[in-house]
Design a protein around this nucleic acid. Sequence first.
DNA 1: TTGCGACCGCTTTTT
DNA 2: GCGGTCGCAA
Length: 633
Amino acid sequence: MIDYVKLLNEEQREAVTAAPGPILVVAGAGSGKTRALTYRVAYLLDNGVEPSRILLATFTNKAARQMLERVARLIPHGTEAIWGGTFHHLAHRLLRRHASLAGYDPSFTILDRSDAAELLSECYDELKLSRSELHFPRREGALEIFGLAANREMPLETLISEEFPHFAEQTDRLVELARLYRKRKQKASSVDYDDLLSEAARLLREQEPLREEYQDHFHHILVDEYQDTSRLQADFIHLLASGHRQIMAVGDDAQSIYSWRGADIRNMLSFPERYPDSRLLYLRANYRSTPEILSLANAAIAANRFQFPKELAPVRQGQRLKPSVVCCPTANAQASFVSSQIQELRGEGIPWEEIAILYRAHFHALELQLELTRAGIPFAITSGLRFFEQAHLKDVAAFLRLATNPRDSVAFARLVRMFPGVGEKTAGRLWEDFSQTGDLASVAPPKTSAAAWKEWVALQREIASPELRRQPAAQIEKVIDSFYRTYVESQHADAVHRLEDLSQLVSFAAEFPDTESLLTQLTLLTNTDRSGSREGVQLSTIHQAKGLEWRAVFVIMLADGLFPSSRSAESLLGEEEERRLFYVATTRAQDHLFLVYPRYRASHYGENSLRPSRFLSEIPRELYSDVRTSRTG
DNA sequence: TTGCGACCGCTTTTT
DNA sequence: GCGGTCGCAA
């Protein structure tokens, strides 16, 4: 039996052992939020709750995995039956299981961002819209608007007039575009990320017996990072939770940083209205940071108007080492300052892995990567390029997609365009032919590709066999051996690297029982933690650093226009979110915190003079020490 | 109709 | 500095 009294502080213990009923836990940064959640799950299991009756929803794959692993360490048996995962995973699980009831083929495909953009391109063509038409959003922009509408559960028209008034005149065409897009997804038996959530929610809303079954099934629902849930996500959870109404939502309003993707802080604020008998608990003791770092963080967030004001209290003793604010003449000087400071920290015995460099946007880390490489400091970067989104991996996945879902037009188009002489138009015509007969062999490809086509048809048939569909790794090997190796060697100078990635994919695939679950993971596990090496100094965006901690943290490029980014700083709400992002960054640090900015940075437009971030000027002078670096670098 | 080269515009964050 | 888009030649 776990000794909850010894292992938890009073506030944590109250949350962990709370009696049944709806509970909102407002948990500050570094207050042991994950600890409280994992112990809560353990506590429930300890008290005889069946694992399969517990649902644990998180935002990222990493958070889900971490918590489930920790629970498994506390309670050795049966924890794999817990319904744990990201909102998208959980929604997917429901939708896949009850696909027919929801009006889908059970082998539907999940479209990632670029697949969705591909399908949307076809809709632009159908509407005879140029892909770069003036005063009309491009594909990515349109997808963003559609996604926001879905997550806010708002009609497109309303969203456009409220948030995108500059597109108001295009409302009709955007609505039409959305309709075509929906139709094409349906035809291709495909769903995008937002559909996973909204279709699962619709399923539960419309199918009363099913809803009641699940409401009855889940005895305990726990939600992590509640401040970052969208209305759609909160409603999805609510649909599942309104049976036993034993929901524990944990979050920190000061760390809400995803409003651009539909996160709505009102979910947290209105929790007591949605669940009138709910209790509000606080975790306010910060275990992570020195008092000096915490004072700075508290001061940093104080300027926000829209928040539950709360002071975090340090558990740790003062070490009299204030955070540093460092002014560097240039971005290169900033890089060399960080680099030499890292060497120093290393000299004090701090391992590389305990040092992180955080920034607002990926491109802010450019100079730094060069400098660290030059200095021979090992580092790992959570790159913007995701492993599974690279062209060659998507190419290979397309073979498998078509094998499981013959209606997947996006995969089909991707495949046939690998043949010489096949472009957009021909791909479309081949698809017409194929979807009519349903037989690849009866489709007539361009003459130049006839032989290769035949070979492909045979391959496609082979990997679609029931045995091979239970061995995704073998499928991929066949694809590479019979077809793709030759293709990639003829197309790409760096074929060797690409083939290496593919052999990584083979070993990854070996862990899956069937093609379908592999493909699901490929699209839902877009997280960087796949290829991400944990060795060396960690370079990360602040968004990706959420929930993590390091002994030493550098926040770089703290210059107005970069952080806060010029686009977000235009509105008050945008600026407040940037400030929360700054708060998230500073609260990652345990012992050392450096806030660094350059005065000049060479951009593609030329040399730019920069001003220190407005967030720095909001911090009382006595809370940090000022450092100025020389003009070297 | 494809595929290549020139040019344009933009540069935030992610399941 | 790059990816995407468009125009043009084959």
